[in-house]
Design a protein around this nucleic acid. Sequence first.
RNA 1: GCCGGCGUAGCUCAAUCGGCAGAGCGACGCAUUCGUAAUGCGUAGGUCAGCGGUUCAAUUCCGCUCGCCGGCUCCA
Length: 646
Amino acid sequence: MPVITFPDGTQKHYDSPKSAMQIAEDIGPRLAKAAVAVEIDGELKDLNCVVENDAAIRIVTIDEPEGLDILRHSAAHIMAEAVQRLYPEVKFAIGPTIENGFYYDFDVPKAFSSEDLVEIEAEMQKIIQENYEFSHWDLDKSAAIAEFRTKGEDYKVELIEDMEDEHVRLYRQGDFVDLCRGPHIPSTGRLKAFKLLNVAGAYWRGDSSRPMLQRIYGTAFAKQKELDEHLHRLEEAVRRDHRRLGRELDLFSLHDEGPGFPFFHPHGMILWAALEDFWRKEHRRRGYGEIKTPIALNETLWRQSGHWDHYRENMYFTNIDDNAYAIKPMNCPGSVLVYKRRMHSYRDLPLRYCELGLVHRHELSGTLHGLMRVRSFHQDDAHIFMTPDQIQEEIEGVIDFIDYVYRDVLKLKYQVELSTKPDNALGDDEIWELATDALRQAIEAKGLPYEINEGDGAFYGPKLDFHLEDSLGRTWQCGTIQLDFMFPERFELTYVGEDGKEHRPVMVHRVIFGALERFIGILIEHFAGAFPAWLAPVQARIIPVGERFMDYAEKIEQELTEKGYGDLRVEIDTRDEKVGYKIRQGQVDKIPYMLVVGEKEIANDTVAVRHRKLGDLGSMSISCFKALLANEVQSKALEPELASEK
RNA sequence: GCCGGCGUAGCUCAAUCGGCAGAGCGACGCAUUCGUAAUGCGUAGGUCAGCGGUUCAAUUCCGCUCGCCGGCUCCA
């Protein structure tokens, strides 16, 4: 007779086998109501699963991440059943859960429209109302293949054929049967709050040479309130979109005349220059020497580097005096030429060259996205030439550098991926393994969590990629560290060792921001356009209460922008408008400080300070404000110092 | 590049079942001289993305091209 052990260590004795649902009910009606699945001896199972022997049991509720995931997975099945009812000719592919919801891929003769989604949702409601139970059974692989083949479910057949297990599991609710590992919610009626969001084409198995399917994205939550909150967050994200803020704050623009080639405006360039100054200072501190290499170089160089064979599709070409040239898609070959200009001693190494290099890549038109994905961009690149025994220390140094910029200075959350050998790679497996291990050791030495991104390395070496999130939670690769044994070989790079003989150095390619363009896009969304003072295009705007106070406003502007006090960026709203109007404009423009000046301020030689977030801070002397702002800028503070006092 | 959607004033969006295109915000002008998120009145602003076709007539219907948006693939 089963003895059930619960997560808190308590035990219950039953004199006959019980289903997990019965056990949950036994504990309490509230738990039974929230239960969606059960974990038995570490394995997730359906609630109707019967426990016959002693077991450790944990009831999984809808309030837990796992429970929500199960709910969404079941929602995907319910959506599939709805599609089957409305479009009997459909073939089913896969329907997994994702970060904030689920999707299902369908092969249908005609693409779904957004009106179709409304109908499918309505059909799902019916299925929920009809409250079908989810049940499952196991089947021989061959029997399952036969069954799906009869039904013409080619995609399912392919999936089963690729499975290693001898048995597969099928799930049914209502008239819909699907290949599925489970578990599922007990019945369709348990799905309360869901919404279908959008349709998109998606290649079968993510392979662009295979058929394009129709993917419907949706999401589901335990409660309607949570769903509403999620939908509200999606709407809010639109406001943070860097493409919208870029226009509203007049930072940059894109034009039909140059798709993927962004134009930066004066305010955008202030942001850019602030990042660039920071970048330069940090590189000098860390022993990098800055170089600049040309945008167009002879094609022979690109043949030697391997780009011609491995990267040509992404490159632009041109002719100069009847000679073939390529516009650089990467900075490395240029950097290598600088290295090769003379002989190097082991004493020179590690030699670190950094370069804010402008590269051009022919990205597919459908992938362009504001500043995040462009066709010309500035990499804050660097190439480190070193001896093999310097690898570990140098890579760890770069990891520290990236962590300093992302986490310490900007408080950005990031994820690390280790990208391994791609299909289209230079060099043999042995060298790749060596390089990949070196990167793995370095990241593990730093104790940072990472994921493996199989086959996504550069053609010349594996890489550690640092991903940042945009306002919708989409991640973009920014920083990257790439270890390269190939270029030194191809370009016959050498250094003279202690033994007086020539040796082959190793190269690291790395970027911190990644691309200035993309990084600025990330920052715009991260700060929702309200930049910390050190990055803000305008740090303070003076608002005269009336025209009579314009002279005083100008005097303050002069004092604040006076040399020797850190180049503060200040302007006056000279327009003939009421104070409230100008304040509003300042808020909309997301300017950190507004300085209201009128009769009182002239009398006391002060400014009335208003912060965009803290509101009216009262009056202070000009020198006091100047010190406050200069300090905030100099320290790169993300929040105003006064925030803690308020 | 692929699938789907979209393209009207600087921005956000109406309208025309084929018959000379409209609002709010913004810009500009005048009045107002104002104390912490929108003062009032007025004026200008559009080859209805581009090209071609159908038609007496096309912003509207059809085709192509370009661009944008959401995905897929790809990537900093």
